[in-house]
Design a protein around this nucleic acid. Sequence first.
DNA 1: TGTCATGTTTAGATGCAACTAACTTTTTCG
DNA 2: CGAAAAAGTTAGTTGCATCTAAACATGACA
Lengths: 146, 146
Amino acid sequence: MQLTFSPVPKLTTSSTAAQDYLEQIHRLIGSKGYARVADIAAALEIAPASVTAMIQRLDAEGLVVYEKYRGVVLTKDGREIAEEVVKRHEVLASLLRSFGLDEATIYQDVEGMEHHISKATLRVLTTIVEELEANPKLLARLRERL
Amino acid sequence: MQLTFSPVPKLTTSSTAAQDYLEQIHRLIGSKGYARVADIAAALEIAPASVTAMIQRLDAEGLVVYEKYRGVVLTKDGREIAEEVVKRHEVLASLLRSFGLDEATIYQDVEGMEHHISKATLRVLTTIVEELEANPKLLARLRERL
DNA sequence: TGTCATGTTTAGATGCAACTAACTTTTTCG
DNA sequence: CGAAAAAGTTAGTTGCATCTAAACATGACA
């Protein structure tokens, strides 16, 4: 008997660019209910043509469902990746925000760092954020030192 | 009278790849006294030909001095960039190491994140690391929670 | 000192992710 | 309803960072 293998997502799409698209598509669907090419392009500050190219690739990899001229929807796999990226984003952003960094710096650093955080590192950062939230004295003391 | 401008480093070389080269060249010079193409290639796990291409670019940008077949040396500008990258690397690594992450994870995450850390974020992370070093009770408590 | 192994460079190709310009489809509204 | 505007797509180009294969330089040593 021939064994069949479950279609493991083919992680070609660990590219940080692809993750950025998935993240934005997820955010747009969350806030507006749908994700149009023009909105994705605006959010990522790139040309619409580039968005078309990428969502075709993401569709081929099974992370979104794309219908020409109709817009795009996340698959389960795509949503899972998007949610992980968002989670990492949130943790990093709240850490930096708790120390009072300006939003522009937060945006830039988080955008750069978020793709490279493993599960293990995410747990470390989450723990730190939780402690600082639970322990405002500590946070205040550390902020002093900046 | 014609004004002359001081040669601001031309930050084309904010590319993360370029930073990786500068960091490794710096490390090699630090440990062996010199940086050969083959060693850089081995450290970065890329082909020697790719190293040649990059150090030519870094030379053109004034970050290294490159003499064909002779090896490479950092300029002041190049060394400054390399030292910043190393500093960010060290802070991130010691944070993760203090929480007991395995070296492989540390290496991977740090390698990815280090290029995207601004001065401000570096200060935040440094402060956290210092506090954990000064306050082992806190560290122990947080490690419990992982 | 000439030869050869090792190390380095050049030339040319590839993949990714962006771009612009031109074309097509969809939507809006008079 | 149909024409103009808006949105989306295709085709072709670019820059970066990598690769392989082949040519070339350097240094060791027989």
